[in-house]
């Protein structure tokens, strides 16, 4: 057998496996998120997987705020075509006004405030079956493998994107989520000699990616989109408009 043919077969098999695992590879479905190209490269197929469950770890309130900001940035792109979004939590802390900074119009988010994790997950599963939603965010304490599997199965038919924000660090079980993220705030940078606080800057870590390459990046949210920060780039171009910090 020729080596080329062998490669073709392998790549075709890989594609099949990915599809069976819930990845879709139709180019029409791919949503490019501006400024996130380097992170997208870490996923199989080099695109941000929509129609899947993403898991975010946040063990401190500060991390929770950073994850909330990052998710809001992602939702901003997902909701661009006029969809609605569901934000499920057991103790809502997110301040809707701030979400506007990340390109989300807060009045299009429906907040569901439940008492227990179990209810939150039930609501999430029901919502994931609803085809029209742009995204669903759930803040829960923990997530077992079984629960994540149920969510993943619901997502596979509806292709809605789900975000799980886990706040309990003690029991870090494996889940069926497509990616595990951790967003930590890092000191913001300002032009030398300027007073004040800079743009929100995070250390974005992809701890686990199914069939992808985990990695770590420094990202910033400026002028309405993500911006990758490399070490060389220290001088940040500040746009003329008023700085918006979320």
């Amino acid at each position: 057998m020729f080596p080329d043919a062998k490669k073709d077969i392998i790549s075709k098999l890989q594609k099949d496996i990915l599809q069976q695992e819930g990845y879709r590879s139709q180019p029409a479905d791919i949503k490019r998120i501006p400024g996130l190209e380097n992170i997208e490269a870490a996923f199989p197929g080099r695109f941000f997987p929509t129609g899947a469950i993403h898991e975010f770890l946040s063990f401190e309130p500060e991390h929770g705020a950073a994850s909330g900001g990052f998710i809001a940035g992602l939702l901003g792109s997902l909701m661009q075509r006029g969809g609605a979004c569901l934000w499920i939590s057991t103790a809502r802390k997110v301040f809707p006004v701030a979400l506007h900074t990340f390109g989300v119009s807060p009045d299009r988010i429906i907040f569901v405030n439940v008492q227990y994790d179990k209810e939150a997950l039930w609501v999430m599963e029901e919502a994931l079956k609803c085809k029209g939603l742009a995204g669903i965010v759930a803040e829960v304490r923990e997530l077992t493998f079984m629960q994540s599997r149920r969510l993943q199965l619901a997502v596979e038919t509806s292709h809605v994107t789900g975000f799980i924000l886990r706040t309990d660090a003690r029991r870090l079980t494996t889940t069926a989520c497509v990616a595990r993220w951790q967003i930590k705030p890092v000191p913001s940078q300002l032009e030398a000699g300027m007073p004040g606080v800079g743009f929100p800057r995070w250390e974005v870590a992809l701890l686990r990616v199914r069939n992808g390459k985990p990695g770590k990046w420094t990202m910033e949210w400026q002028s309405g989109q993500f911006q990758l920060i490399t070490e060389k780039l220290i001088t940040v171009v500040i746009p003329e408009q008023i700085r918006r910090v979320g």
Binding site: G64, A65, V94, F95, V97, L99, D107, V245, G246
Partner: peptide, 16 residues
Amino acid sequence: TPATDWRTSRPRPTNL
């Protein structure tokens, strides 16, 4: 629907 615009001129925290 919102009667006024969302005010974004001042920084507001993500979690309150």
